[in-house]
Amino acid sequence: MTDFTARRRMMVDTQVRPSDVTKFPIIDAMLKVARENYVPVAKREAAYLGENLELGEGRIMLEPRTLAKMLDALAINGDELVLDVGCAYGYSSAVIAHMAQVVVGVEVDEQMAKDAQETIIASDIDNVIVHHGPLAEGAPKHGPYDVIIVEGGVDLLPDDLSAQLKDGGRIACIFMDGPLGEVRLGYKRDNAISWRPAFNAGAPILEGFTREKAFQL
């Protein structure tokens, strides 16, 4: 029988801590949340690998290092409302739930959204709502949000998401340039977001997050 608890500890000790992630709430959450429960059964043995986990249809589960470093940069507080865009089977939302007041996960795949909500409830986590709908539209009825995290690659941040971030709020996205990507942290002031680079990472660009190609004759 696979000892997932040992694998979880090894993930934190070899992938998260060495990446300069030291905030206790992040370490504690990643030690507590059973990552293997938030992936398809056939993928459980690969749940703790140090790479993005393919979920099909161009979707991935972010590698532990990338998620942890994004959360470290965002520095979520216990009284904040967080929007988790592209939560897939709910792992990231479950982790963030240990740091935030309420998390709203957005998932476009209906079965993924259903499985995410069921797994989160079964894990006795009561401060996560999973919203089924297009990722680029977010979940405006629950906003505005103190923090937004996008669980996938971005070419352009949709205006609908920008509008759901509170003034003074933070957002983290993986901006892709071909095969290369960079996580950037955005701060919203006076209805405009200013970005600063955080670290390198990569992920497939999410549907609805691509820049429209200019028409050429």
Rank of each mutant, 00 (worst) to 15 (best):
residue 60 I to G: 02
residue 62 L to P: 00
residue 62 L to V: 02
residue 63 E to C: 08
residue 64 P to M: 03
residue 66 T to F: 01
residue 66 T to R: 01
residue 67 L to N: 02
residue 69 K to C: 03
residue 69 K to I: 00
residue 70 M to H: 00
residue 72 D to L: 08
residue 74 L to H: 09
residue 74 L to P: 11
residue 80 E to N: 13
residue 83 L to E: 06
residue 87 C to N: 04
residue 88 A to T: 00
residue 92 S to E: 12
residue 93 S to F: 04
residue 94 A to F: 00
residue 96 I to T: 02
residue 99 M to Q: 15
residue 100 A to C: 12
residue 100 A to E: 03
residue 100 A to F: 02
residue 100 A to V: 12
residue 100 A to I: 05
residue 101 Q to E: 14
residue 101 Q to R: 15
residue 101 Q to F: 06
residue 103 V to N: 07
residue 103 V to G: 05
residue 104 V to A: 05
residue 105 G to S: 11
residue 105 G to N: 10
residue 105 G to R: 09
residue 106 V to L: 08
residue 108 V to P: 01
residue 109 D to I: 05
residue 111 Q to K: 14
residue 112 M to I: 04
residue 112 M to D: 02
residue 112 M to K: 13
residue 113 A to H: 09
residue 115 D to S: 12
residue 116 A to N: 02
residue 118 E to D: 12
residue 118 E to C: 06
residue 119 T to K: 13
residue 120 I to C: 10
residue 120 I to F: 09
residue 122 A to L: 12
residue 122 A to H: 08
residue 122 A to T: 08
residue 122 A to W: 05
residue 124 D to I: 06
residue 128 V to M: 02
residue 129 I to S: 01
residue 129 I to P: 03
residue 130 V to S: 04
residue 131 H to L: 09
residue 132 H to W: 09
residue 133 G to E: 03
residue 133 G to C: 09
residue 134 P to I: 12
residue 137 E to Y: 06
residue 137 E to K: 14
residue 137 E to R: 13
residue 140 P to G: 11
residue 142 H to W: 11
residue 142 H to R: 10
residue 142 H to P: 02
residue 144 P to D: 11
residue 144 P to G: 04
residue 144 P to S: 05
residue 144 P to K: 01
residue 146 D to E: 13
residue 146 D to V: 14
residue 147 V to M: 07
residue 148 I to S: 02
residue 149 I to D: 00
residue 150 V to M: 08
residue 150 V to A: 00
residue 151 E to G: 06
residue 152 G to S: 12
residue 153 G to L: 03
residue 153 G to M: 06
residue 153 G to Y: 02
residue 154 V to Q: 05
residue 154 V to P: 07
residue 155 D to K: 15
residue 155 D to Q: 15
residue 155 D to E: 15
residue 156 L to Q: 15
residue 157 L to W: 10
residue 157 L to I: 12
residue 158 P to Q: 13
residue 158 P to E: 12
residue 160 D to Q: 14
residue 160 D to A: 15
residue 160 D to P: 07
residue 160 D to C: 11
residue 160 D to R: 14
residue 164 Q to I: 13
residue 165 L to E: 01
residue 166 K to T: 14
residue 167 D to T: 13
residue 168 G to K: 13
residue 168 G to W: 11
residue 168 G to P: 13
residue 169 G to V: 02
residue 171 I to H: 00
residue 172 A to K: 01
residue 172 A to M: 10
residue 172 A to P: 13
residue 172 A to N: 06
residue 175 F to S: 00
residue 176 M to W: 08
residue 176 M to R: 09
residue 177 D to I: 11
